[in-house]
């Protein structure tokens, strides 16, 4: 039935395609099929990358490329001009290095907590517990929320007159202005990020756990291995490839953190929760002065880091799929 419906359409397409094939040859015809995708990719991905390169090597606050002046590697030189990379105060562009340091710490803490809590949750949800489906949904639910919603919800919880302080006061404790203290603000940024994304990684680890053959566990039971020994000697080694993928994915996601933290703290207090993407956004677009060159240069440096992380991820994925 369907074939009868589409066959006239096929005949309409068939004729020009045959003509085209005769003219171009079968090998070149592939390009005709690829052309729409290439056009889309070129316009929305490849062209902006090229433009980014052009902006990184030019100066002035003009947005039109033709009005900008070539400055060579000056934008990179300014960003990398530091007496000590460990102390942002010694850098010419201190805010860039504060953002780099914040991002590095954020990644270390966020990936650590993310993998740890996701693993713990996956292990619990993999057991035969009551309402397992419900709990799986509960842990996955924050992943579905908009980052701005996540940020606003936690902002309301943590603000001076928020729910958390109301709770603390109700039990006779002093309230804390959580987002005014740089250390607390950083802690809550990590917490919020873990809370919002943990469900996704839990799901991946859960799939990894379920892929471990049952007979290995049965053999362990027969050998009288305890739960801790079973976890250490069977679950962890067999889950390691999945955990590595989770780690690298969380790492890449951590580097790209922007929207929810920007809505949550605005990068403050001071620059305590300003991460690299926010630095790029504020430098280039957040209002005057619009420093497109340094913003583009910073985003190229970030791109290099992301490429390196992606290569590591691909390598791990290939290694684990090859057994």
């Amino acid at each position: 039935m369907l074939l009868r419906l589409i066959s006239p359409l096929m005949n309409v397409v068939d004729l020009p395609m045959r003509a085209l094939q005769r003219r171009l040859g079968i090998s070149r015809l592939a390009w005709v099929f690829l052309l729409p995708n290439l056009l889309l990719f070129g316009t929305f991905a490849f062209l902006p990358i090229l433009l980014n390169f052009a902006y990184a090597f030019t100066g002035t606050d003009n947005i039109l490329l033709l009005d900008r002046t070539f400055v060579g590697a000056e934008n990179f030189a300014q960003l990398l001009d530091c007496d000590s990379y460990l102390d942002p105060n010694t850098c010419a562009r201190d805010l860039f290095w504060r953002a780099v340091h914040n991002t590095a710490w954020f990644i270390v803490m966020q990936v650590g907590f993310m993998v740890g809590f996701s693993l713990l949750t996956a292990l619990v949800l993999n057991r035969e517990i009551k309402a397992r489906g419900f709990f799986r949904a509960v842990f996955f639910f924050p992943v579905l929320l908009s980052p701005v919603v996540v940020a606003l919800v936690w902002k309301w919880v943590l603000q001076r007159n928020g729910i958390l302080n109301a709770g603390l006061e109700a039990v006779g404790m002093d309230s804390v202005v959580w987002l005014l203290d740089r250390h607390w603000a950083f802690f809550w940024s990590v917490f919020l990020s873990v809370w919002a994304h943990m469900g996704f990684y839990t799901l991946i680890l859960l799939a990894g756990l379920q892929a471990i053959p049952r007979d290995v566990y049965e053999a362990a039971v027969m050998d009288a291995a305890g739960p801790w020994r079973t976890f250490r000697r069977i679950t962890l080694p067999l889950l390691m490839p999945t955990m590595l993928v989770v780690m690298v994915l969380a790492l890449i996601k951590g580097v790209q953190t922007f929207d929810e933290i920007y809505a949550f703290t605005g990068g403050g207090p001071g620059s305590a929760t300003t991460f690299i993407i926010q630095y790029i956004y504020e430098t280039g677009f957040g209002g005057a002065p619009r420093l497109f060159g340094p913003a583009a240069a910073a985003s190229l440096l970030l791109a290099l880091l992301l490429v390196a992380l992606t290569v590591i991820q691909l390598w791990i994925t290939r290694r684990s799929s090859n057994g």
Binding site: T265, G266, G267, G268, E282, G287
Partner: peptide
């Protein structure tokens, strides 16, 4: 809270 709790611009 006004100046301290926010960041950037």
């Amino acid at each position: 809270d006004v100046w301290g709790a926010a960041g950037g611009t």
